[in-house]
């Protein structure tokens, strides 16, 4: 029997891969997909905790997180389209008009 730690470890690994992906990639769409990966990793944690406690609250949060991810994806992709119209690129290293 595998312990719950393994599920959580898998979630942590995926989350960290997501973070590294966000930080090192320069294609805005891929970055966004890495964010989605992070959210998925969190969902896995929530589901495993929920199963562990036999408590439905965690799954409800996953449900909301899914819905919000959908809303975020819609708006985010629209923004990416808008930036592509301006720059003809989704490379974030070329988006440097605004600097401190």
């Amino acid at each position: 029997m595998i312990s719950i730690d393994w599920y959580l470890a898998l979630s942590a690994i995926l989350f960290c891969i997501g973070i590294v992906g966000v930080l090192i990639r320069k294609n805005a769409i891929v970055i966004f997909m890495c964010v989605e990966l992070m959210l998925n990793a969190v969902n896995l944690s929530l589901v495993s905790f929920s199963s562990h406690y036999g408590n439905v609250d965690g799954q409800i949060l996953v449900f909301f997180s899914l819905a919000i991810a959908a809303a975020e994806a819609v708006v985010g992709l629209a923004i990416i389209i808008a930036i592509f119209r301006n720059n003809f690129s989704v490379d974030i290293t070329q988006i440097n008009l605004l600097r401190w």
């Binding site: 029997m1 595998i2 312990s3 719950i4 730690d5 599920y7 959580l8 470890a9 942590a12 690994i13 989350f15 960290c16 891969i17 973070i19 590294v20 930080l23 090192i24 495993s48 929920s50 199963s51 562990h52 406690y53 036999g54 408590n55």
Partner: peptide
Amino acid sequence: AFLLGVGIFAQLIYSIGSFSDTLPVVSAQM
């Protein structure tokens, strides 16, 4: 990115490692 990734990962694994207990993974109510 590497430092952050490793750091957060280590922290998370460490935190989670302390969680393990005798309960089954999937509780009966599930």
